[in-house]
Design a protein around this nucleic acid. Sequence first.
DNA 1: CAGTGGTCTAGACCACGTT
DNA 2: ACGTGGTCTAGACCACTGC
Lengths: 318, 318
Amino acid sequence: MWRDRTSRSDGRGGSGSWSSPRGRRGSLPVGCTTCVDGGSPRLGRARIGAGDGRTAYGRAAVVDGGARPGALYRKVAADLGREITEGAYGSGGRLPAEGELAERYGVSRGTVRQALSVLRADGLITSRRGTRRVVLRTSQVQSFGELLSFTRWARSIGEEPGSRIVRVENEERATAAEREQLRLAEDARVCRMVRVRSLSGRPVMVERTVYPEAVGALVAGLDEGAVSHTVRLEEQGVLFADAQHTVDLVRADEEDAELLGCRPGDPLLRERRRSTDPAGAPIEWSEDRYLPGTVAFTVHSSAAAGTLARRPGMPPSG
Amino acid sequence: MWRDRTSRSDGRGGSGSWSSPRGRRGSLPVGCTTCVDGGSPRLGRARIGAGDGRTAYGRAAVVDGGARPGALYRKVAADLGREITEGAYGSGGRLPAEGELAERYGVSRGTVRQALSVLRADGLITSRRGTRRVVLRTSQVQSFGELLSFTRWARSIGEEPGSRIVRVENEERATAAEREQLRLAEDARVCRMVRVRSLSGRPVMVERTVYPEAVGALVAGLDEGAVSHTVRLEEQGVLFADAQHTVDLVRADEEDAELLGCRPGDPLLRERRRSTDPAGAPIEWSEDRYLPGTVAFTVHSSAAAGTLARRPGMPPSG
DNA sequence: CAGTGGTCTAGACCACGTT
DNA sequence: ACGTGGTCTAGACCACTGC
């Protein structure tokens, strides 16, 4: 392992390389030794990188609520997650036992369990008493940032994101609905913004976002050409930690039709979203309307976590 | 607390009632004493019921992967979850500190943290270093069972579920797509079923489900009038543990239109789903098409868990 | 600086699945 | 009977928030 532990310098080492596949040594945490490979010879690939930005475990800008980025269990999770998505265990294959992993990584069983619970939450593996864990899927996990930021998402799928600001309303009095969504006081003001988002020049979505005044001030200060407001906001200390989404179907209104180049009444896939910062304070309320065929939303759900729900729909108004 | 612990019979007891709000004492786990209330006088409501079926924490038929139903942390989570959804801390309010909760419930800090992580996964609370946890929302969590079973969902929102079997194909050779989704061998056979689901007599959804042969045999054995196949399957030992969902928009084909009473080409909200059992084996692959305005899907996502993702869509084929 | 949650360890016992 | 994961405890230390 990369930490000095009693009887681990047994010279079993494989390549001894703990660098990421791209050769970046990354920021190994303080206190790391030169990493005598403690990896199991069975798989011989127990390297823990600093995260190469492709997996969602080594997140940067978007913060997990107070989680320590360099935590041991995150490195273990990142390493195992990479192995899984690379197909090292196959789809439906079995993971090594907790104890085995603890030995391989030179950490306690508790830490291994914490790592595995991350992978479980991401829907990569199952977990039940009596048997080893099983690989559920080998697909990459999409990061929270790619979910919230249209720009980051577009780039991640190899498309060029575009943004055209249609309308900005600054310091407007918040409506009752906005006050409730953003948890604002009676006399609060908000910033509203309407944008058309495009993929490689083709308009695909209309985005109508409402920000609380403080956040709106930052948004208003962005350059006209700033593509990703989310990224800019994060750079200025507005951190996105949680979001609640609702997906349904609506008909295009006059404005939608004009902006997206479709006809009024045409169906659109709608995603409404309320994002909150690590303190739980709402920082954004947004309604996105996508042309059909441009996106799909995928969710993993399990008996352990009730993140997805089906709700009664409103009768279509358009 | 309800367990005998050294210095806990301090007679601080409030009402001493550990029964649920409806007065059912419920099935307290073996080894429970008469529950000398160890609750904090601050809130004076530290009762842990057996779950009244409304919250998702005391789940019955649908299993969490090997989790013990009577676990301490689940009771604590159920109790805190109930308090939160009842508004005891308000929206945006702060929870008691971990240590305080540990004392109130007479458990270790680790157990409290396990309970809180359940609430966090459900999107009810935030969590960050340095400050107390904050209530994110006070809405009820929908159980996994209500998500997977149309019947259970309909009843939970006060509607009468209906089901009409349109077509059953038994022991059919699986297509390549079906083999991949259900992880079947080359020569495997499947059972296909098409149903129209209704709410209070009004058709709202077409459901096309494919089962592996073994599961299909059980489904075929159900009475014609069995409304919830999911529930029946669970009764026969087919347990649903995980599911992967994809939500997008499609156009009604000829059959859809006829079954739902709309016109071909009309937009429908589509949910595709692959469900797996606790061992990770696929047990169902389903495609549901809803009339607009009848449902919406909600998801909580956070920087900690990547359950929701946005994917590129296929160009509309209809 | 005090309070609070995040991380990690070590060990114990139990319940489940499989052989 | 054995291996495996689920649960619980007790304690230690650290990092962040907010006064």
